[in-house]
Amino acid sequence: MPRSPPCWSRCAASASFLPDPVSRDVYLAEAFGIVWCADLPLPGFAPIAPDCARRTRLPVVRVEAGAPAERPVLRQNRRGAIHADGISLWWQDIAHFDMWDGDRVIYTPGPGWTGTMPAAFYSTIAALLLAWRGAVPLHASAVVVGGAAVLIAGAAGAGKSTSVAAALIAGGALVSDDLSCLDFAPGNDAAYLKRGRPAIRLHPQSAALLPGHPAMPAPGDPRGKWLVEPAFCPDAIVRLGGVILLGAPEGPLAAIEAAAHIRGMLFRPRWMAALPGQRARLMALLALPGVVRFAGMAPLTAFDSEGLAARAAALAAFAAAALAAFAQG
């Protein structure tokens, strides 16, 4: 497996760094190639010690309580607004978020605030911030199998998380679940995934097949899924080995076949279409089949051990082919 690169960013905010010393009132977490420096705990991300955070050389994003800002609106979106220097949105009646320049999030608790950051922060807000910074947020999960990182995309309910669970049962390590952060080396000739949230949402039947890992019912999940913390990828950034499209014709996919699914891979596609940089995001995604392998696999909706073992074997074979392709240069 090629070595992971240092984190690069096309955002001026990357110049931000962790203060020394770090205040005792600050909570640090790491996800999606960013150190999140917050004034409240962020249990949806992996906690990180100040010394470790500095060693990672990852850019820092500040998350602080404050009042909503009055900013000129460039474009109104269904749930929020886009400004020249960021986005703003209400999440139900729970909280208002102001994202500034991709390096700061100000949250304002609303009437429905429960005292903890809502799930939307770890998904929608994180994805919008990542896109603002020049990364490509994808509605996909990812797992390291046999040394290669495999991205698994597909429609809701196609079995992305269950496919990841199959690989985890077979000894894989989680990179990201549901929201994956793709970034490219300059020139788009190599693609990388940034390690995401440390937990995966699984149907109880799949969760039961991953014993020995912390698990609990996902708060407020309408499908009754569980949150499981499996083996987590040890690297903050990993080179992408290949992409599996669930529901696409089975087997290797040509670039034109992969192109049919490109737009559907974006996380919160309506927001992404409205944000600056959509052309660059789509161009990078279009180039992806020229950088890594794409293959289609059937959706995975059953939770029997034979089906999961078969999926794990298929993912392992795909990962091995990806590694062989890397070795050939």
């Binding site: 670039a255 034109i256 279409a273 052309r279 789509l282 020229g290």
Partner: peptide
Amino acid sequence: WVGSHIDDSLVMLHLETGKYVA
């Protein structure tokens, strides 16, 4: 339209409609 040269083709995608062509 945005496009990417892959192998001998130029794969193109329409930003608004999602229509694609090689």
